[in-house]
Computed example of a mutant assay.
Amino acid sequence: GQGGQGQGQGGQGQPGAPGSGNEPPPKLRYIEPPFEVFRELEGVEHAARVLTAKSNVVVSGKSLGQGMLMGIDNVDFAHVGWFRKDLFPIHQNLYLNLLGQYEQAVIIPTSFAEKHHIKPGDLMNITVSGQPVEFVVVAAVPYWPSQYPDEMPFFIANLEYVYDQAPITPYDVWLKMKDGAKVAPLLESLAAKNVDIATVKDVRNELITQKKHPARGGVFGILSLGFLVSVFVSLIGYILYWFFNLSSRVVQFGVLRAMGLSRRQLTGMLLLEQAFTAGLAIALGFGIGKLTSYLFLPFLQTAENVKTQVPPFRVIFDSRDTGQLYVVVGVMMLTGAALLFLHIRRLRVHQAVKLGEEK
């Protein structure tokens, strides 16, 4: 969840208040409530202050337009922010450590650095609440949590340094919640402690809403139904194949048993046969399926999604779905093995040999 905080103001009158005349509106002065309150809330694992503000960017006296300044406390953000490991050349904490080592440090997007030929060590001025603040570029990263570099470049800096140079402005509070923890009790606790919350955004509710979207449910329903039908047909075909295969080889099994092959050896032979035929086919099916997914699933993106999707599209295999597939395949193999055991136990050697003599 997120909540903006900041309360109190300077001056006597409100803008446009009766009797204010043509006097300029008083400048707002924000007072920061104690942040420890958020860490002590029930159900909260970690909390972090995150300031986001549109700012003008100047490098070497040249204005480079607007960007989104994000002020953070690096240690808190390391516990709360979610990073995808394959998006960064090195571990994300090494970038956060740079913020801790240099007070004036700023991390910029890779695309912005390449476009304007900015490298680590360059100076940069970013306007915060009308106050120009000087920063030193320490690193460039392709992506950052909650930021979209294609829409607007981001600049990650130390929150305390920003507040040392510019007036305090309301910031967001990012909370890492424990499993099953609710947001409503937090708001009641904060209200009891006289901490006003401007807005609340619960990502978990958004995820639930997206999962219940009709289009998503329809696509997943069709895929699940197709999977169940194909599994059912494959299972029936597998069972029928083994049933008729074993029935047609009764004479062969009888002769082998009469020649001295034990029941255990005959069972092992058939299990190996099953593993080399069905097992090889199943292994090839898994391999070809994964390869096909990697090759063709990226084509499901539309032209617009390719440009705006952050982080970029990737193919993932959910461990839960993969586990269900393994269970289904295991049931199929066990069914075949059970049929095999039953058939061998019911096999009467003398009848099979006699049947062979009649033929």
Rank of each mutant, 00 (worst) to 15 (best):
I107D: 00
D76G: 01
Y102G: 10
Q12C: 05
E134L: 14
V136G: 06
G61M: 05
G19V: 11
D122G: 08
G61T: 07
Y95W: 05
V141I: 15
W144N: 03
E32I: 09
G61E: 04
V37P: 10
I72L: 04
A113E: 04
H46W: 07
F38Q: 04
G10L: 10
V137D: 01
H91E: 13
V136Y: 06
Y143P: 07
L99Q: 11
K54S: 06
E36V: 10
F38E: 02
Q14N: 14
K27C: 02
S129W: 08
K54I: 04
L94T: 12
V138F: 04
S63T: 03
A139I: 14
N74S: 13
V58D: 00
G81F: 00
I90T: 14
K119R: 15
M68S: 06
V136S: 08
G67S: 01
N56W: 03
V58W: 02
F77L: 03
N56P: 00
P18D: 10
A113R: 08
S60R: 12
I90K: 15
Q2F: 14
G65Y: 03
Y143S: 09
L64F: 03
K62D: 00
I118S: 03
R39F: 12
V141N: 11
H116C: 00
P33C: 03
F88L: 10
Y30P: 06
S129L: 08
V37Y: 13
Q2P: 11
G10E: 12
S60F: 02
V57Y: 05
A48H: 01
L96Y: 05
N56M: 03
L98S: 08
F77D: 02
Y95Q: 01
M124S: 11
D86P: 09
S146Q: 11
P33N: 04
K54P: 05
M68Y: 04
K62R: 14
D73Q: 09
V50M: 14
A113F: 08
Q92M: 12
E114L: 09
V136E: 09
N22C: 07
Y143A: 07
A47H: 02
I72Y: 02
G67N: 00
K27S: 04
N22G: 12
P132G: 11
P34W: 06
A78I: 03
V136R: 14
A105R: 08
W144A: 01
P34C: 01
V50L: 15
L64A: 02
H117L: 06
L51S: 09
E103G: 10
S146D: 07
I118A: 00
Q5K: 13
H79K: 10
G130A: 07
S111P: 00
L123I: 08
Q101S: 15
D122M: 15
T127P: 05
S20A: 14
P145N: 09
